[in-house]
Nucleic acid binder design. Sequence first.
DNA 1: GCGTGATTTTACCAGTTGGTCAAAACATGG
DNA 2: CCATGTTTTGACCAACTGGTAAAATCACGC
Lengths: 200, 200
Amino acid sequence: MSKPETPIQKKNRSAIMNAGLEVFSKFGFRGSTLDQIALESGLSKPNILYYFKSKEVIYTTLLGELLTDWLKPVRDIDPDGDPIAEILGYAAHKMEMSQNYPRQSRLYANEIIQGAPRISNVLTSELHEVVDKFAQLIKSWSKKGLIRDVDPHHLIFSIWAMTQHYADFDFQVRAVLGHDDPFPKGEKHVEDMLRQMLTV
Amino acid sequence: MSKPETPIQKKNRSAIMNAGLEVFSKFGFRGSTLDQIALESGLSKPNILYYFKSKEVIYTTLLGELLTDWLKPVRDIDPDGDPIAEILGYAAHKMEMSQNYPRQSRLYANEIIQGAPRISNVLTSELHEVVDKFAQLIKSWSKKGLIRDVDPHHLIFSIWAMTQHYADFDFQVRAVLGHDDPFPKGEKHVEDMLRQMLTV
DNA sequence: GCGTGATTTTACCAGTTGGTCAAAACATGG
DNA sequence: CCATGTTTTGACCAACTGGTAAAATCACGC
């Protein structure tokens, strides 16, 4: 039985989550400090520790929320839908997440690059499982001749790579393009690429 | 006139570079400490600072070397070669770099994710320029009908994204696949994908 | 095997780090 | 407006941070 949140708790907890996301996504766990999060959230350091008992709890709470949002759209793929539309729809959705929630993408990227020390169990269990199911579905689609014969796992990696690239490497993308908004063209390109890859 | 290096200098400098690469690629600049680099290199902290005058110099030296290796294969693309072979060759080369030098890839990824504070000038000048030239070449190839009509910049981003994914997200890739070596199949998949995308 | 410069170590420092604690300030229902 | 629980603060700590200075040790040509 957890007590109901007071309005103050709700406001401050979310301010801390937001500040934590801002800081951790930029510097990773080790590179971030409670002082930065304190500054960013407008709360004092001891006050932050009143709401979350350690730096690590803030971090893992953020990662937990993130993984839920991450996995959901994979689970939502409709096995009875049109294969190409389903896969393209998933890619488009990931692309929107990169555009609208780049900090989450960077937080996750940081964690994985650093060897995923705090979520490797989720990767080998939940993620593995959910991806395998998706991969089997793709396999069955190509067996039925509905899409080209592709390696399902590596197709999924390609989708992740291309879509997350726009969030994680945003700085490089914009530097190379000269500060246009890369997303409209990027989305079209990824769609084109996947369609070419999948169309029989 | 810089003095010639003694064997000891050569050995220790390279030990520090190697240790720095190991540590910085895992934790980024802010998250890494001289103590970690000292431990990893087997030298004492003051001894490290005898060879490099600060933590930042180690880091920027590594980044500098990296960018040179990074840019070279783009410059080496032959405008008179077979377009598809040239692009696929470049992608294959990047893939090998991901396989053989994953730490460099992660170091670079960390730097970009963190907003590229120490190399943004290189990105907007040298990288921008070199990529624009490559993009123009791609454009001319598709104008001549030698490859499909694609957005050159975003094609390049896709190549970078897919190839570097295998280094930067190695942990996730292996977790999902269950510890097979992902590279042989990954390389084939990327090649297939690009060929589909480019063949008229 | 000695002298000189190259290398390494020891001891240290000031600033920052994550975190604690008790006291103070606040909110709010009665 | 008071009592009680909630929230916030200020003072503090031990460990760690990047970096310094000088002394000690080492390597090597003579």
